[in-house]
């Protein structure tokens, strides 16, 4: 039985902890603490070290899923958690002030990992979330960086949506 490691990252409040909790077969290891940064997000709690969950793939292989903190002041955790990772899922949220800047920030922050492995992007499509920026705008940001990453509109509260991101990432990694 093989074990694989992937990361889920994205800005504060994008749904990283929720996504892992949606698909994990074990109780999620969570390092959430009280959020005092209400300028960044109105969330009551925030992840300050990592989240961790596991799912079993077809054939019995284990997928270990690590969630990163979203804030740049925790970028040391981004580097630590990137070690040994097979690939990256970036979650974005149109309800945040500048989602396209968020995309650039995480493409920069995880540049070495993306270059070595692969990444897919999930943009929240919850009914309450604005439809702007458009999906095309996200692709334009990637095109300006000579990148084309698979992008999906997802609701991370839905298991099938999170598994779509995971399966897509694994497919990307297979063809590399």
């Amino acid at each position: 039985m093989a074990e694989y490691k992937i990361l889920i990252t994205g800005p504060m409040g994008a749904g990283k902890t929720t996504a892992i909790g949606t698909v994990s077969e074990i109780g999620v290891v969570s390092t959430d603490v009280k959020n005092s940064d209400i300028v960044q997000s109105q969330k009551a709690t925030t992840t300050v070290a990592m989240d961790y969950g596991q799912i079993t793939l077809d054939g019995g292989d284990q997928l270990r899923i690590y969630g990163t903190p979203g804030q740049e002041r925790f970028d040391f955790m981004w580097k630590i958690l990137s070690r040994g990772a097979l690939g990256l899922i970036i979650l974005l949220d149109n309800a945040r002030p500048a989602p396209l800047l968020d995309l650039n920030k995480f493409l920069d922050g995880f540049g070495p990992l993306i270059a070595e492995t692969g990444a897919v992007i999930g943009v929240s499509n919850k009914p309450s979330v604005p439809k702007s920026p458009s999906i095309e705008a996200y692709y334009e940001v990637m095109a300006s960086r000579n990148m084309v990453l698979p992008l999906f509109e997802v609701d991370v509260r839905k298991k099938d949506d999170v598994l779509l991101l995971v399966d897509s990432l694994l497919s990307v990694l297979e063809i590399r």
């Binding site: 959020n35 300050v48 070290a49 002041r73």
Partner: peptide, 25 residues
């Protein structure tokens, strides 16, 4: 703070904001 903001520090060679975030983690 629990979420990694520096409230008070003595002067040192270590970058305070970074140490505060690491403390939280």
């Amino acid at each position: 703070s629990a979420d990694g903001f520096n409230l008070a520090a003595i002067r040192s060679a270590i970058e305070e904001e970074r140490l505060a975030a690491m403390t939280s983690s």
